[in-house]
Amino acid sequence: MLRFIVRRILETIPVLLIVATLTFFMVRLAPGNPFDTERAVTPEVRKNLEAFYGRDKPLPQQYFTFMKNLVTRGDFGPSTRYPNRTVNELIGESFPVSLELGLYSIAIALFFGLIAGVIAALRPNTLSDYVPMSLAMIGICLPTFVIGPLLILIFALMLGWFNASGWFSPIDRVLPALTMGGIYAAYIARLSRGGMLEVLNQDFIRTARAKGASEKRVIFKHALRGGLLPVISFLGPAMAGIVTGSFVVETIFQIPGLGRYFVTAAFNRDDGMIMGTVIFYATLIITLNLIVDVVQVWLNPKLKFE
């Protein structure tokens, strides 16, 4: 297993280099640059701005300078949008916020999603299937930009239990976590029901039941292992998305998280920030997918690390 993990970590290096290279050129090819504003900048100022950020050099040279700083010092350079902060500082400030919210959301999503999914799968096409699944479908039909404001209207403005926005006191975590967790709970509920149904129909479960194993044992010892596979595969990329924050949720609730940088950096063509967020996200995705692969083997002893 150790060899497997070491090999996967080594594989990460070329992947990140490819991601960095592709992103660098994609950003440079896209029209517009960080210095375009509604009020046109004079040509002299633009020249000086470009000189300061090294953008007056030929593209290949910029690329190599960038890669050198990245590889040797892990440095993405300054943010063109926020000149008194480096990209690393901006990510360092905002990621803990998104991570905190993300962990609450995942906890909510897993708790409600798994229970609803398993209940539904155990009694398919009965009331205890229809009720949680209809709830899940409602969760899926209401996007965050509807459910978020709706929660605020009800619980903050009508009932006055919460602040309408902000990230100051612990209770400010509740509504955004519910908004984000709710949607993912719905996904997990649907996926775990589907996965469980597949497994519960399989021969080894029938065998186990026929042998007189208790229902609890059948579920926990046999069914869950296979039944949760799709949820686990889904969780890899989903968790990367959740812990890096959601632009919509962070905007609706005014949360100083990382999620909004993914969007604003692209809109501002803040190339340092784009590179920073992309590489950060890539590292997370790779790590989480690695964990997923390990968990899959752990759940299914027939699989081997290869």
């Binding site: 594989e11 896209a30 990367a240």
Partner: peptide
């Protein structure tokens, strides 16, 4: 094969979607 294919998926996950769309459009 699995390794290579899954690393390609990782790469595609990571690329900035907004920039990708803008480029496609241009």
């Amino acid at each position: 094969l699995d390794s290579v294919m899954m690393r390609i998926v990782d790469i595609l996950y990571s690329l900035p979607f907004i920039i990708f769309v803008i480029l496609l459009m241009v």
